[in-house]
Structures are given as structure tokens and as C-alpha cells.
Design a protein around this nucleic acid. Structure first.
Length: 389
DNA sequence: AATACCTACAACCGCCTTTCG
DNA sequence: TCGAAAGGCGGTTGTAGGTAT
């Protein structure tokens, strides 16, 4: 059908921001008479505006019951939950938030909440883990695999590439762990990659060698059809996106077993097998809410104090698998990946008991600032550094 | 201090739905 | 029942203010 703009016939109507005088005319008129017919209102109120413009100005800004000010945490949660259910039905969402207009909620979503979810690795449209990150995985792995001769040919760019790869790895890990968590609740469809596929990929991403994929890992990865990763988007139902670590669950704060439960593999084993995980709410498992979280553990090079200055030590360089493998520390630039050197890390050095952050919280955190730094070479090679560049 | 860039939000546009004669 | 007018909605744009260079 379609309609011409309501004021098309009158090209002289004013557009743009409203002046205080216009606001006063509109408010005074509606207080005295009600708005009645919006089309006739401008003329009756002495406004050179389109009726539609008057209605929007009134409903979005001048109405006396409009609530002003920042959105509260409760309002944020409500908007996110409602959006997950209703989608972009802003007017429907607005009916649940007293005093907020659909336009205000829409703007707040587009400027704040959308970015917030994206930073948490959540697709703001589907409210599921982002799969666009997985789609770029092959390229990412290729970049991460640059080392040795390739690195020598790209001496200036390799650090930036590796750091960007780390940033993407971090987000991919967020998504993968969420996917794996959900996989315990719903069996994977036959066509989708298996949990073991993901484990292989994860192993490759977090590979102990600093140069990237090597030997057996690379062979294993080649057996995984990465193109099927995209199927995760619709095939698994995810657990609720709630902060699931209740005080009671965190209370025991017992030192977790220092064996596999603190390693990523151990954690994922539990997720995949369901061992020690209460059915129905994987994310809230007390097993997973102890002080030492999987991803912030040193097993992934993400100790809470991890910084770019965390460079592989001489010991690590000399330890098989610790930044070593087929790529020596000499070949590895100063900006060795924080995902590198995993096998050499000593869990005994970590104060797990005092790490009070739930791992699910870490998963939902935005990228660390140093990982999302737009100019990584500045971080790795400060101008007043020792002149290693 | 000047300029460029970024962000937030008010306002507009075009389409769809509802109402009414 | 039909068609036009009016209201409503969601996407997009324009702009002011803030921040970085």
C-alpha cells in the first residue's frame, strides 16, 4: 500500500530539533485540549509542524510520565530478556518498562546493550554465542600458525598479527566453552561437529607450541570439517545467560584438585561427559564455580594479572613445549603469545584459593584492555623500551 | 587551539495496521 | 465491504557534545 508522508502536501512545515517555545505551545495545547487529531493539532496549537512530528515529540519527550536518567541494572536485564523473547518489538518491550519509551529503549539497545553483548561473545540478534568468530577460525589459525620462516619474512607485522589472533582466540574460547556447555544438555545432531572435534580445535588454539599448529595437532585439526561449525548456531539450546554463581556455590572455596580439574581439558571433559555437573544447569555447576576458573587459569595464559609484559622466560624457552616445540624462543618475537608456553606453566605457582572470580563471569567479560588495544605494537614495543626493535 | 573522530540520542522516513465514514 | 485517513512501529539519519590527536 504505502502512504505519502503525512506532511508532504505542506513543504513549509518546520523540521529538525524542537525549540523550547514550540515545546511550550505543544504542551500547553495538549494540557488544555488533549491531542485529539494529531493531523489537526499543529494548526490548532499554532505550530508549523507536521502532526506526526508533534506526536513523536509528545510521546518520546514531553509526556509528563516519562522517566529520565540512566537505565538501572534491573532495567538492562529486563530489556535483554525481553529482547531475547520479543526481538525488536520496542513498543512491546516499552510496555514492560514504566516510564521508558520505545525510542529510548531502541536507542539504548543500539548504543549500549548491543555492544555489551557483542563484547561478551553473544550475538545480540540470536542471543546465542557468536558464530561469526568461528567462521573466521581457519584464517585465524593460519595467522596464529605463522612462525619460523614466515615470521622472519614479516618481522614488523607478526606481533600485531599474533596479538590479534590472541584476541580472537579469547573470544572464540568464550563461544566454544558456552557451546560445549550447552552440548551436555542437548545431544549434538549427527551433522554437527562432535565435541571431540571442538576439543581438537580447542587444543590447536591453545597449543603449547608458540609457533602454532604442529605435528599431530595439525593432523588432528585437518580431520575436522570447520565449515560445520556454523551449524552450532541453531542446533544447541544454550543455558540461560545468567550469572550462575550463587554465594552458596562459591562459599566452600575449597582448593580444587590440582589435577585435571584445573586444566582446560579437565574442565571440558567434565562439560562434555557431564561428570560432576548437575543436569540442567551446566553453567551453575559448583564444580565450575570454584575460585580457579578454567579460562582465567594459567592453563590458558590468562591469569588475572596477565599482561603483554608476560614474556616467556628463559626457563620456559628451554622447556619442551614451553614456547618451544619446533619454534625456538629466538624465532618467537618478544611478543610471544600469552597462549603460548602452556605446558610449562606450573599450577603450584598460582594462588587459586584467592581467585574469587567465577569462571562463568570471566567468560562473559569483555576482552581485556591489553588484548583489544588497537595498536598492539605500542603495547609490546614501547618507545622507551630497551631497543629490541 | 584547531581539527578529526566518536558517541548518544532526538527526530525523521517509510511502511504496516487500525479505524472510520 | 472498501478505501482513505490516522495512528503506530521499526529502521535510519542528523546533529550536538565529548574525546582524542
Amino acid at each position: 500500500m504505502g502512504r505519502s508522508p503525512c506532511c508532504e502536501q505542506d513543504a513549509d512545515v518546520k523540521k529538525g530539533p524542537w525549540t523550547p517555545e514550540e515545546d511550550k505551545l505543544l504542551v500547553d495545547y495538549i494540557r488544555r485540549n488533549g491531542h485529539g487529531s494529531w493531523r489537526r493539532l499543529p494548526k490548532n496549537a499554532g505550530l508549523n509542524r507536521c502532526g506526526k512530528s508533534c506526536r513523536l515529540r509528545w510521546t518520546n519527550y514531553l509526556r509528563p510520565d516519562i522517566k529520565r536518567g540512566d537505565f538501572t541494572d534491573d532495567e538492562e536485564r529486563l530489556i535483554i530478556n525481553l529482547h531475547a523473547t520479543l526481538g525488536n518489538k520496542w513498543s512491546s518491550i516499552a510496555t514492560k518498562l514504566k516510564g521508558r519509551t520505545d525510542n529510548e529503549i531502541k536507542n539504548y539497545w543500539n548504543t549500549h546493550l548491543r555492544k555489551k553483548l557483542l563484547n561478551q561473545g553473544i550475538d545480540p540478534v540470536t542471543h546465542r554465542p557468536r558464530t561469526d568468530l568461528l567462521a573466521g577460525l581457519p584464517n585465524l589459525l593460519a595467522a596464529a600458525n605463522l612462525g619460523g620462516a614466515a615470521a622472519a619474512q614479516l618481522p614488523l607485522d607478526i606481533n600485531a598479527i599474533k596479538l590479534q589472533a590472541d584476541a580472537a582466540k579469547f573470544q572464540i574460547l568464550q563461544g566454544l566453552v558456552r557451546v560445549l556447555a550447552s552440548a551436555t544438555a542437548a545431544p549434538a545432531p549427527a551433522a554437527a561437529p562432535s565435541a571431540m572435534d571442538l576439543m581438537t580445535i580447542l587444543g590447536a588454539i591453545t597449543g603449547a607450541n608458540s609457533g602454532g599448529l604442529l605435528g599431530q595437532q595439525q593432523q588432528q585439526l585437518s580431520s575436522v570439517d570447520l565449515s560445520r561449525l556454523g551449524q552450532y548456531d541453531g542446533n544447541y539450546s544454550l543455558p540461560p545467560l545468567t550469572n550462575s554463581c550463587s554465594p552458596q556455590q562459591q562459599q566452600p572455596m575449597r582448593p580444587p584438585p590440582m589435577s585435571s580439574s584445573m586444566s582446560l581439558d579437565g574442565m571440558l571433559d567434565r562439560l562434555v561427559s557431564g561428570t560432576g555437573v548437575p543436569s540442567g544447569d551446566v553453567m551453575s555447576s559448583p564444580e565450575l564455580c570454584h575460585g580457579g576458573d578454567g579460562l582465567s587459569s594459567p592453563a590458558l595464559g590468562h591469569t588475572p594479572v596477565a599482561t603483554p609484559s608476560m614474556v616467556a622466560s628463559e626457563d620456559q624457552c628451554n622447556t619442551p613445549g614451553g614456547g618451544g616445540g619446533m619454534t625456538s624462543c629466538e624465532q618467537t618475537p618478544v611478543a610471544s603469545s600469552t597462549f603460548d608456553g602452556l605446558a610449562s606453566l606450573n599450577l603450584d605457582d598460582v594462588d587459586i584459593v584467592n581467585m574469587e572470580v567465577c569462571w562463568t563471569d570471566v567468560l562473559l567479560e569483555p576482552l581485556p584492555a591489553w588484548l583489544s588495544n588497537s595498536n598492539p605494537s605500542d603495547m609490546y614495543f614501547p618507545k622507551n623500551n630497551t631497543g629490541e626493535m
